[in-house]
Design a protein around this nucleic acid. Sequence first.
DNA 1: ACCTGAACACCGTTCAAGT
DNA 2: ACCTGAACACCGTTCAAGT
Lengths: 199, 199
Amino acid sequence: MVRQPQINAQNRPPLSTERIIEAALHIIDGQGLGRLTMRRLGDALEVEAMAIYHHLPRGKEQLLDGLVAHVGAAPADLPGALERAAGWRDALRRWAHDYRARLLEHAGVLPLLVTGRNPAALAETTASLREILRQGGLPEVPAAAAAHALLAFVLGHAALEVRGTAEGAAALRATEGPVDWNTRFSAGLDLVLNAVNPG
Amino acid sequence: MVRQPQINAQNRPPLSTERIIEAALHIIDGQGLGRLTMRRLGDALEVEAMAIYHHLPRGKEQLLDGLVAHVGAAPADLPGALERAAGWRDALRRWAHDYRARLLEHAGVLPLLVTGRNPAALAETTASLREILRQGGLPEVPAAAAAHALLAFVLGHAALEVRGTAEGAAALRATEGPVDWNTRFSAGLDLVLNAVNPG
DNA sequence: ACCTGAACACCGTTCAAGT
DNA sequence: ACCTGAACACCGTTCAAGT
């Protein structure tokens, strides 16, 4: 076995902000946000909880900020998006489907996204949506409004899906009937995209 | 002073679920969700924290469920909404503005709303939106989709507003320029409402 | 019926100390 | 530079006890 300088005496990779964030996300996805504690996170990383503070001096606040950035910052890959897609509307539709999937995959992080924490995290995402709309022919102001409307719809819809598919929603589904969330999302998305005029 | 049977020996009103929820909301609005603890809530109610469990046996979970219901359950006042408004589109617009104001007033509860907790809390709201759209002439399926799209937009936009107006967003506003959120919300709302066909 | 007090098993974080 | 161990001030909640 080749010597690996990155591996320390205890034969495990050293701590890093990335590894910490990933371990935290794994705990959230598996057990829920409420069970993410510094001590449990330390256990998952095979380290004392206090070691985390060496990499995240602001502690748990900084950890949650990092999670918001990790999940929420998904720009639309500006150069590639328009080339691969059949027009800007299709590019936005693809982005929206991807972003929704990302949010639902890490639904436990959603509560952190609807908070004032790490406000810059979604800036790049909004900017890239706005730019696609501008290249689609929209003036500055309507493009900015449409970008926010689209992002708001995707965020809000993810929230409704989380609520509607929760375990406790079984009684709800019994009275209201089951909902096909994929269809519902696509329908709402088309509603929003069709309201954006040019194209 | 007239004798008040509701007032006990310590000369304060007895605990009730409503008073507990209102005190909790007051703490959240003033200090943030993170500072809502059973002990602090007890202090605010001039009672030991453990007394709360007599009214909310499931403890903090039940308290948070109640907060979701209190803030999130705002149906569109079906009988009155259409009479007072100039058509269903105007009725939905009014509801959306009211609901947004409510969410922003209690922004600290928003993270609880994007969770699977108390899934029934928003059912009445969705149902009344759907009914307005039906009375506007929409068939069942498009009405259900449009109701969800509208609610998703309002929820998601409130989230974006919370992020955009956070203290930490000052640097963001410096680079991106300030946003008029009222205008932005109205623009997005019109976008969504205009996409809903009849009327 | 309604509330209290003490206790338990946890939290996040500081700080001095180890290597 | 990177991590540990002990300690502190909090948490939510249980349970027996008071009135």
